[in-house]
Design a protein around this nucleic acid. Sequence first.
DNA 1: TTAATTTGACCCTA
DNA 2: TAGGGTCAAATTAA
Length: 301
Amino acid sequence: MYVCINFKNMYSYKKISYQMEEVMSMIFHGMKLVKSLESSLPEKPPESLLTSLDEIVKTFSDANERLKMLLEIKNSETALNKTKPVIVSVANQMLMQMEPGLMQEYWLRYGGSTSSQGTEAMFQTQLMAVDGGGERNLTAAVERSGASGSSTPRQRRRKDEGEEQTVLVAALRTGNTDLPPDDNHTWRKYGQKEILGSRFPRAYYRCTHQKLYNCPAKKQVQRLNDDPFTFRVTYRGSHTCYNSTAPTASSATPSTIPISSVTTGHSVDYGLAVVDMADVMFGSGGVGTNMDFIFPKNDPS
DNA sequence: TTAATTTGACCCTA
DNA sequence: TAGGGTCAAATTAA
């Protein structure tokens, strides 16, 4: 199952996008202050401590206020523009510029909500089930599986490896179309299998840093039977290699993600598209071209 | 030379 | 027992 979000009113969406960047930068500034305070905590005199705390509180409080205002704007626009969800095929084109794994990465890196309900409410998304070429609205959650299992861990477990997320990703139309688009992580292919009932084999990847950093992230990539230009990518496990080998997105502006492959991996080049987090957070509007994204709804972490 | 991919065999689960 | 997931030796690419 996948989440589709409509982005319509490009004008207000850009304004909000800009404001959201400001909020994000305020939050990051606050975090910086906290870190700075933390490092100098033992020798800080009470007066200086008070000043620092005041500044931190004010920064986060300002960010909070600004965010509330943005949400109000967003909600009022949503009420005015009840739009019909557009289906995955349209999204394929957008995915050439931005693909779901990056949203997952963004949340992981920049502290997305740990509450899927909160995220759900904020985005007011519409869930859509995509089954091959068919479509139907659903209100179920994004695929999760393997939460339970036997209590005796074994070396080669499959069913209780934690959360699983499935997303659709557009295949490249040029170059090596066999490769799924880069998702800003480096993956090593460790297997490929013919799957019963599937026209195309399923490829198995794990994080390149699995051994070095004990990173458990894995993904499966498979072309859809009825749409060879779309990959179904299933992510399992979260990356634990961020702190040590983080791709450069974290060093960029917090609200932007470079989509070209900044690490090695498959050398798929998309140019350098930039994705605003606010684009995703406040993406419903009135006039303009539909822009649809698909990304995992639940909190990937 | 090193790292990544391929692929047949093995293991695990339903 | 079948099907899916993983391992690891062999092969290929950089």
